[in-house]
């Protein structure tokens, strides 16, 4: 589904990603872990098309298409979803209008007719139930005045609405209490299927108790330095990242 080959990227002239290689197949869950500043969020941003980052080398293929050639909106229309670490508040844009515009833009791209207002609202209610988000939130402006936990739930809700092929969740667990974490993880698990894939970017192992990954990768200094099964996350939890840093030094 996703194939990243030797990806290098800069931010303001500084190289952050120094040759990433990653293969993600349908049905898989990959966790990307690593210390602060290792390039995790940069990788998520590059995949979603944030223009802040400059890709200098490498290739990203998604379902046979060169992802780096596509605009951010076309990547979303092709089925990529980025769950933001810091979801943006947009006062004055209602969640209903936001989601209706998004879904109909995606449908247009795929050659489908727009959803009628009533069908859309039915669909929205249904998805709100699936991810257990309070409909009070979905009737407000996008993220405006939401708590940290509510914003993250709203990311998962949007993911449920848009039904992506590949979801990239960037530190979705940060700032969540254990109950919110359970709800968010529950939403992700409900949306897992053999046709979709998930990349979970996280600093802590905690989230992986709820979203069990098939692979765990450690990103350090712009490279994936270790890949293993879910047991790697536990090892990292126990020992911290220092042993990886030391290994790298040697």
């Amino acid at each position: 589904m996703l194939s990243i080959h030797n990806l290098r990227a800069k931010v303001e002239g500084k190289e952050i990603l120094k040759g990433i290689n990653l293969e993600v197949k349908a049905g898989e869950v990959h966790a990307i872990m690593g210390p602060n500043g290792s390039g995790k969020s940069t990788l998520a941003g590059v995949l979603a098309g944030r223009d802040f980052f400059e890709v200098t080398e490498g290739e990203v293929m998604f379902e046979g298409k060169n992802l780096l050639d596509l605009s951010p909106e076309d990547r979303a229309r092709e089925g990529i979803f980025l769950g933001f670490q810091y979801p943006v508040e947009i006062p004055g844009v209602s969640m209903v209008n936001f989601m209706k515009t998004a879904i109909n833009e995606i449908r247009k791209y795929r050659g489908k007719d727009p959803l009628s207002a009533s069908d859309f609202l039915k669909y929205m209610r249904l998805k709100a139930e699936v991810v257990e988000i309070d409909t009070k939130l979905t009737s407000r402006s996008v993220n405006e005045g939401f708590s940290g936990g509510e914003k993250k739930k709203n990311e998962i809700f949007q993911m449920a609405m848009l039904e992506p092929r590949l979801a990239i969740l960037d530190e979705t667990d940060s700032g969540l209490d254990i109950d919110a974490l359970r709800v968010v993880a529950g939403g992700v698990n409900k949306l897992r299927s053999k046709d979709t894939a998930t990349i979970v970017i996280t600093h802590y192992q905690r989230l992986l108790d709820y979203i069990v990954p098939d692979y765990v990768h450690v990103l350090y200094d712009g490279r994936i330095v270790r890949t293993s099964g879910k047991e790697l996350a536990l090892e990292l939890e126990e020992k911290g990242y220092d042993w990886i840093k030391q290994e790298m030094m040697q």
């Binding site: 979603a48 098309g49 944030r50 223009d51 605009s71 951010p72 909106e73 990547r75 979303a76 229309r77 979803f81 980025l82 933001f84 979801p87 943006v88 947009i90 006062p91 004055g92 844009v93 209008n97 936001f98 989601m99 515009t101 998004a102 879904i103 833009e105 995606i106 791209y109 402006s141 996008v142 949007q158 848009l162």
Partner: peptide, 28 residues
């Protein structure tokens, strides 16, 4: 707002529609 623009685009909303959403929000 560039952040808001990217957020909207990352959900599949094209630049023109995203601009309109933000301008309408400003006016609303």
């Amino acid at each position: 707002d560039k952040q808001a623009m990217f957020y909207l685009q990352s959900r599949g909303i094209g630049r023109d529609e995203a601009r309109l959403l933000l301008m309408n929000a400003f006016a609303n």
